[in-house]
């Protein structure tokens, strides 16, 4: 998504001179096309993310649309109060670009994992929070949101290749994307982990469990109506997110279920344990946290078994 971000931003910047790009000294081999095309609208603010968020606020107040770029934790958590008291409080068009949600920085360890960014950002009224599932959706999302009057947070993946089959680059603010309609259980997945969820759905289908797959990329505004409609059609719902289970889309689904008086049982799949110092590749980290396609599949199979006969499968599960 990083490449499509820069490509899209370049196109927009050619048309709109308000667009600027700031970085907290990250983006080597990624941001150069923008830097080279618009050297006067590109600022490496140094390893100083709080100031970068403040600079962006001052620029936006004067009419610019500054995008500021860093790894998720440094883009969101370090300058969080600046974002709150700056772009959000003043309702300015600052764009926060966080790269590498979840475990994407693998062996870099916990300091580089984005595991609570969605929770803290969606807690704030007045900011749009977008977590695309693949590059095509990232492009659609950027094109739909770059010119919003208030701030936007983009949680982007480094992964430029993965495609979520059936998503077709669709995105709409405040809407969820139904990638697949099934009769048995529903999987609701957040952004970048949707490919794993889709793979799990494929496996489950072969095992006789017919799955609805729903992607949430517009986290805030949340697709509450879509979720209520989808959840009400299922008795067992799973949320999948590369994020702590508290505060993310699992919590969002729980809010929708409670507020609408729905009867579905919710199983939240996400990161449940604190860090113990053990790291590895993103794939490894997802696996040990129960977020690989296989682990998601197993968890859903187990819940279906445990919930029988409450969950009536459309056909006999293997």
């Amino acid at each position: 998504m990083r490449k499509v971000f820069v490509k899209t931003l370049l196109e927009l910047a050619q048309k709109d001179e308000r667009i600027m790009l700031l970085t907290g000294d990250l983006g080597f081999t990624v941001l150069e096309p923008f830097r080279d095309a618009f050297p006067k609208r590109f600022f490496n603010c140094g390893v100083a993310e709080q100031n970068m968020a403040g600079i962006a606020t001052g620029l936006a107040e004067a009419g610019f649309i500054p995008f500021f770029y860093s790894i998720v934790t440094f883009a969101v958590l370090r300058p969080y109060e600046f974002i709150r008291n700056g772009a959000i409080l003043h309702q300015l068009p600052v764009r926060i670009v966080g790269v590498g949600g979840g475990f994407e920085y693998g062996s870099a360890g916990i300091t580089h994992y984005g595991l609570e960014d969605i929770a803290v950002m969606r807690a704030q009224p007045g900011i749009t929070v977008i977590a695309p599932a693949d590059s095509a959706q990232a492009r659609s999302a950027i094109l739909e949101s770059w010119n919003l009057p208030g701030p936007v947070y983009y949680r982007l993946s480094k992964d430029d290749r993965t495609v979520v089959s059936g998503l077709n680059g669709e995105f709409a603010l405040g809407r969820a994307q139904v990638v697949r309609k099934g009769k048995d259980v529903a999987i609701i997945s957040l952004g970048g982990i949707s490919a794993e969820a889709a793979a799990a759905a494929e496996k489950l289908l072969l095992l006789g469990i017919d799955v609805s797959l729903v992607v949430i990329a517009s986290v805030h505004p949340a697709p509450r109506e879509d979720l209520a409609r989808i959840i009400s059609g299922h008795s067992l719902v799973f949320t999948v997110e590369e994020h702590y289970i508290n505060g993310g889309i699992g919590s969002l689904a729980a809010e929708v279920i409670a507020e609408n008086g729905l009867s579905a049982r919710l199983v939240r799949l996400g990161v449940k344990q604190g860090y113990n110092g053990v790291s590895g590749s993103q794939g490894y980290m997802k696996k040990i946290n129960g977020l690989s396609a296989e682990a998601i599949c197993r968890a859903i199979q187990k819940s279906c078994r445990d919930d029988t006969p409450k969950v009536k499968l459309s056909r006999k599960a293997v």
Partner: peptide
């Protein structure tokens, strides 16, 4: 610019000054 949390105003101001120059 709103304020109240110390240490933020100078960053806002630096951004505002950079904007004026641009």
């Amino acid at each position: 610019f709103s304020s109240g949390s110390l240490g933020q105003g100078l960053s806002f101001g630096a951004g505002a000054a950079l904007a004026a120059r641009m």
